[in-house]
Design a binder for these strands. Structure first.
Length: 282
DNA sequence: TCCCAGGTAACAT
DNA sequence: ATGTTACATGGG
């Protein structure tokens, strides 16, 4: 394990890992524990120093936390109104992270219409049942299972992970794993496609609709204009930008694209965290 | 008992 | 093209 001391500005580790974009990081004491690129990573922040213990190279860590994103520029673009300015002030330093596309895709397929607690447990079960054990110091973690491992298992074994929609969802995951492991669906290649083209390809997969596609594009394929709309975002957007009218998701996506532009995904993440923390009467 | 949860696909207008 | 419903389940 190497020790990295990385100077950071406009970066907040807690907001970044708590805002809802990742499911597997955990905070123990003042330290966060996660698994990135199949290795354990320990991270903590003190003011403008991010301390990371990991086998990863410094560039890989910087890339994962998107330290090259120009946050002043992002804030200039999305800080369009009072609500956005408040969210930015409150969560200043929240950054998107660059997740592994395969893990991200399966995680969000599992997420549908389920409470976050449930999603976390499903993903933990997948990792524990089908991933590899990795130890570092006194921590035991699991890698996220590779596509060929999922593709090679059975519906019944998959089903024991506790999916929200039982075997229906297990079938979708098995089908996607077979496509990916057989090189009939290349997730990495989608990074080179335009946002809309990549989204269309993702939505050809059974089990992937607008919301999951946008999450994968935003969280793992560098498409910062993606604006995932779930129940929370729908409620917030209707309330704040459509005078409580029950507008369609298409209308909301249209507004997001025109209003927030190429950093709509950052706007979404700040608003999502805000809504989950303070909105909806909670 | 009813409502809700980081939705999607199939079906009905 | 847009609106509605089954799916499946633990917690408030």
């Amino acid at each position: 394990m190497k020790l990295h001391q990385i100077p950071v500005q406009i970066f907040n580790l807690d907001h970044t890992l708590r805002c809802g974009q990742v499911f597997r990081w955990q905070k123990k004491g003042d330290e966060w524990i996660g698994v990135v690129k199949n290795s354990v990573i320990l991270a903590k922040q003190e003011d403008e120093i991010l301390t990371v213990k990991s086998d990863l190279a410094a560039e890989e860590i910087a890339s994962y936390f998107r330290l090259d994103d120009d946050m002043e520029k992002v804030y200039g673009q999305i800080g369009k109104d009072k609500l956005m300015k408040e969210a930015i002030a409150r969560y200043r330093g929240l950054r998107l992270v660059s997740q592994d596309p395969w893990e991200c895709l399966i995680s969000y397929v599992c997420s549908r219409n389920a409470p976050i607690k449930k999603i976390k447990s499903v993903i933990f079960n997948l990792s524990k049942n089908f991933g590899n054990v990795i130890k570092s110091d006194d921590h035991i973690e699991y890698t996220f299972p590779e596509p060929d491992v999922i593709a090679g298992t059975t519906l019944d074994k998959l089903g024991m992970c506790g999916f929200r929609y039982g075997k229906k969802q297990a079938r979708e995951i098995l089908e996607i794993a077979k496509l990916v492991s057989g090189n009939n669906f290349d997730l990495e290649r989608l990074k080179k496609h335009s946002y809309l083209d990549a989204k269309e390809e993702l939505m050809n997969l059974r089990g992937v609709g607008h919301k999951v596609a946008d999450c994968v594009l935003l969280f793992s394929l560098d498409k910062l204009e993606a604006f995932p709309i779930d129940v929370h975002m729908r409620r917030l957007m209707r309330r704040e930008y459509f005078q409580d009218k029950n507008v369609s998701d298409d209308k909301i996506r249209e507004l997001a694209r025109e209003y927030f532009g190429k950093y709509a995904g950052y706007a979404q993440e700040y608003l999502f965290y805000h809504e989950r923390s303070y909105g909806g009467g909670k």
